[in-house]
Design a protein around this nucleic acid. Sequence first.
DNA 1: AGCTTGCATCGACGCTTATCGATGTCTCCT
DNA 2: AGGAGACATCGATAAGCGTCGATGCAAGCT
Lengths: 115, 115
Amino acid sequence: MTDLSPVETAACCSPLQREPLSREQAERVAPVLKAMADPVRLRLVSLVASHKGGEACVCDLTDAFDLSQPTISHHLKVLHETGLLDRTKRGTWVYYKVRPEALASIAALIGGAGA
Amino acid sequence: MTDLSPVETAACCSPLQREPLSREQAERVAPVLKAMADPVRLRLVSLVASHKGGEACVCDLTDAFDLSQPTISHHLKVLHETGLLDRTKRGTWVYYKVRPEALASIAALIGGAGA
DNA sequence: AGCTTGCATCGACGCTTATCGATGTCTCCT
DNA sequence: AGGAGACATCGATAAGCGTCGATGCAAGCT
């Protein structure tokens, strides 16, 4: 019981087009997709990923939106709890970093062709 | 203005980790992810994809769930309007078929590595 | 014509969620 | 110690969404 994050439990499914997803599998995968199914969170992931060093602090991200700081913090929390973003605190700042394997496993699930 | 479906307008973005998504791009892509961010719809796509001939009629799908027929119909409508599923009526039955390019473009957007 | 079957649409209900302002916590600086 | 800045948490509100039963519509059968 190492308490896997949603994205980790989602990694162990064969591609969508390969064989039918079980109910349990679908219920584990859906939250991960749901975490990305928001314009703000999509941009957050994208901003963090393409930021210098592959990580960004909250202050960098907050400036990119016309949203309040608590709202951004909330979205980052969702992405972190899902296992899509890593969190590191250094001094006063908190840095977020994408987990490439997470995105890769989702992509494999969705786009995994018959091959 | 050939009235593109969401998934088609979403196809023309570079991968998430490549460069930051614009607000407009994010708002076009999010609905597509949202369409897949549901356990039932995930299973529907998976069931249709792996069904004989790559297509399935609604009756086949309804039997796979403990949900009412209107509910399944609603989910299929969402998937169809997003451009993920094609719809064909033959006689009394309606057949749904996945659009592999749609899934592929989403996968490319999410998992498109730096390479 | 009338009935039956397959699927879509409608209206309603309850739950989830995105957003905000206010507040709390922690760290750094003076 | 005290103040300031960075980020998280809380409580509230409004909008969105999944689900249902009831109904509508079209195609095939008797």
